[in-house]
Amino acid sequence: MSSRPDDDELDQRIETLLRAEHDGNPLRPALEALFDRYRTQQRLLDRLTRISDHFQQAERDRGLNYADRYQRKVRQIEKIVRISDRYQTMLRELNDRLHLISTRDELTGLPNRRYLLERLDTEISQVARNGGTFSVGLADIDHFKSVNDTRGHAAGDAVLAHTARCIQDSIRDYDVCARWGGEEFLILFPQCAEDDAFRLAERVRHVVEDQTRALGLSPAITLSIGVTEFQPGESLDATLKRADDALYRAKEAGRNRTVGSAPDGA
């Protein structure tokens, strides 16, 4: 640390005085001793200041180092979060896809049997809790086997997909139609007694027939449908068995018709 100009000037004046011959002046030894002490103090102060400055610099560097490391850590964590989020998105999309695959019928795009079974379970629970009712319609494409036999499986698949689209278009938004197996479709009519379900099934049957006639398919694709209403307390199997029996009667009675399960049903 350098002294101020005033100090330098005073130092020089005293040094000059001490160099001159002033023997016998009683102030001289005292001044000499005092100046010496002053010089020592000055050096000490300079050293102290230098050391103190060094410490401050070191602390400052340490602080910057911490800040730097902190920033790097923050950056790393942000990156981990970003990558982790992307992995999660990837898994979610995969999950959605698997869900879709496990609940859809690939050929027709309709919900599959597994999906509708779950829906029917839910429906039964709701009826048990809140009352109300629901009906189901089991539809089967008439003479489907002959389509496969005479025109091949590709044509059979096309008929299935087309029929599925017709059914899907002719039911209400909250009805659910699933491909039940082979050329069978099961339609759930929520909050619907048997006579209403019967009318809705008839609409489906007409749409399928009209649509295929419009396409000029010969022979036309027609459906036989068995309709029944869920009876409180019974098992789902019992309901489905009744729908199946009704469908059987529809086939027996000459096909291309809807049959209900009520004693005088049809």
């Binding site: 790393q76 990156k79 981990i80 990558i83 982790s84 992995y87 990837m90 898994l91």
Partner: peptide, 12 residues
């Protein structure tokens, strides 16, 4: 293929 968050950190 799939890495959980702590694995991401270890790899980094």
């Amino acid at each position: 293929l799939y890495l959980n968050t702590s694995s991401i950190r270890a790899l980094m």
